[in-house]
Amino acid sequence: MGLQRSDVNLPAGASQAIERFRAEVQAAFGERLRCLVLYGSAVQGGYRSRLSDLNLLAVLPMVTSGDLALAGRAASRAGELVAPVLLAEPELGELAVVAPATLWDIIEQHHLLAGDDSLLAPVPHLDDLARQLRLELRDKLHRLRAAYLAQAGRPAQLEATARRSFGSVLHLLRGALRLYGRDAAVHPVQALGEVARTLQLDLDLLRQLFTLRYENERLGRDRLNGIFGAYLELIETAAKRLATLPPFAQLEPEAPANEVPEKPAGPDEAALSLPPEADEAALSPPPEADEAALSPPPEA
């Protein structure tokens, strides 16, 4: 798996917000800004103005409270839904363990805004990814069950909960595709079909939830209760599917492109020695032919 830079085609307001944030943090951090990338729906596809976040990752040698305050002010002044994350460079290795799904998304699809994206080098292990997905899907399930109980008589709040939560649930389901050797770096609409086939989930329900999340569709009370109940069952089914997977062998990081492979041990010196010289007589030119034999025949 290598770094994959992506082109972006965003609405003018989103592009301007990203540029305002980039210019401010680059001026403030200077050479300390080791890397700044855009990731998430803005590069994967499916970005919706005023609904989707503009996810940005900034890498610094170390992160202080002052750095966080500065980035927070820059994000609030940028406009739109700019959502930056600041990491110290040594923390990238930790991210591969605690949030491998996010790091994998960043590595496979990102847009470089500043610095050097070769820093995004730690390759997550499939076992760490499987563990994260199982735990987070279970956590989502328990939280959404609690919300269903608390908001059952308040359809507007319940609808908002379903809308807000599905983006992160889809992120986890897409991450699960990697456990089955599928391509997760596809447009979200394409991902719905791949997720449904791979995890044996209800495609129609996934499409309804996607429309609710990204098209801001309004649901009636009766339809909402049915969809929310099915939504809980879908998450539980996905978590159970992942729980049946066996442990994975760890992924080996790819060797850098400029790394020269280690030279294999050479054969025995005797095998490399030249053959003994041939007999001089054997190498000497043949005796000259008789001059008479080489002379042209007499003219007729």
Rank of each mutant, 00 (worst) to 15 (best):
L10S: 06
I18G: 12
R20P: 05
L38M: 12
Y39A: 11
G46F: 03
Y47L: 15
R48I: 12
L51K: 09
S52D: 09
L54C: 06
N55S: 11
L57R: 00
P61Y: 03
L68T: 15
G72P: 05
R73I: 08
S76G: 09
P90C: 00
L92A: 09
A101T: 02
I106D: 09
E108L: 14
H111K: 10
H111N: 08
D116V: 10
L119G: 12
V123E: 14
H125I: 04
D127L: 01
D127N: 05
L133E: 09
L133A: 00
E136M: 07
E136G: 10
R138T: 15
D139K: 15
L144W: 01
R145T: 11
R145Q: 12
L149S: 10
A150W: 00
Q151Y: 03
L158I: 08
R163T: 07
R164K: 07
R164V: 08
R164Y: 04
R164I: 10
F166S: 08
S168V: 13
V169C: 01
G175I: 07
G181D: 01
G181M: 01
D183T: 06
A185C: 12
V186S: 03
H187K: 08
Q190R: 14
A191V: 02
L192R: 01
R207K: 12
Q208H: 06
L209C: 13
T211M: 06
L212N: 10
E217D: 13
L219T: 11
R221E: 08
D222I: 00
L224Q: 08
G229P: 00
A230T: 06
L232G: 03
I235Y: 06
A238P: 04
A239I: 10
A239L: 02
A239H: 05
R241T: 02
R241P: 03
A243K: 01
T244I: 12
F248Y: 02
L251N: 04
L251Y: 02
L251A: 02
P253Q: 14
N258R: 09
V260N: 07
P261S: 07
L272T: 12
S273W: 09
P275Q: 10
A281T: 15
S284N: 13
P287E: 15
D290V: 09
E291A: 13
